[in-house]
Simulated scan of single mutants.
Amino acid sequence: MTAAQRQTSTSRFEVPRDDDANGRFIDHLRQSARAARCKSYVDLFGACALLSRDPRIASLAATDLLVRGLSQALGQRPVLFRPGETETSFDEDWLLALARSLKTDDVASATFLLHSRVPKHVRRTLVSLLRNVVDTFDRI
């Protein structure tokens, strides 16, 4: 990635390391994204069928499916940095904002975020996967 590409794909904000929950959540997604790079494409529509009833397994599977199918939902490959980076990309900031709005039941913000980037036919599946990850993240 060139310096110009990195500059345009990063936000001006950094993940505050004192805000441990956001930092751990982004690092969790980043680690899953790195592991999923060598895995095959997954269709978001069939993804929910693969989730287990065991909360730990379901959360890990949901995270894996989320990062593997995110490019389908966004229409382009998302920019996710390595775990531990203090800088965040636009895609990471967007995911954090969506996760926060789902966790706090801020329907207006979640709707705006989804409508700004995600096609209508993918929204429900994306929300289901992200909600699963957010709801069980603290229990991992």
Rank of each mutant, 00 (worst) to 15 (best):
Q76L: 12
L102N: 01
Y41Q: 03
N22W: 10
S52I: 13
G69T: 03
A73H: 08
R30A: 04
T104E: 12
E92H: 06
Q7S: 10
F13R: 07
V79N: 01
G84V: 06
P119Y: 03
L98V: 11
D27E: 04
S52W: 05
H115N: 13
D20Y: 00
T2Y: 07
S101W: 13
Q76A: 11
G46P: 05
D18L: 14
L50A: 14
Q31I: 10
P119I: 11
V107N: 14
R68C: 03
L113D: 01
A36Y: 06
L60S: 08
P78A: 12
C38K: 11
A47H: 00
K120G: 04
L129A: 03
L80Y: 10
S40I: 09
P78V: 07
T10S: 14
F81S: 05
G75K: 11
T104I: 07
S101R: 05
D54M: 15
L130H: 00
R37A: 09
Q72A: 06
R17H: 15
L29M: 14
A21C: 02
S101G: 13
G75S: 08
T111K: 03
T2W: 10
R123T: 02
R124G: 14
L95H: 00
Q72H: 04
R139W: 08
Q76T: 09
T88D: 04
S109E: 10
R100A: 03
R53P: 05
E85G: 00
V118I: 11
V133K: 00
A108C: 15
D20L: 05
S11K: 02
R82F: 12
L60T: 05
W94P: 07
D20R: 15
S59D: 09
T10I: 05
F112M: 06
S59K: 06
G69H: 11
I26P: 00
G46Q: 13
G23E: 09
D106Y: 08
H28R: 15
K103H: 01
T136A: 13
R77Y: 13
D106P: 01
R17A: 07
R53V: 14
K120R: 11
S9H: 10
G23F: 09
A47Y: 01
I26E: 01
D43M: 08
R139T: 13
V133W: 00
E87I: 15
P16G: 04
D43F: 11
I140Y: 12
A62N: 03
D20P: 07
R117P: 03
E14C: 07
R24L: 13
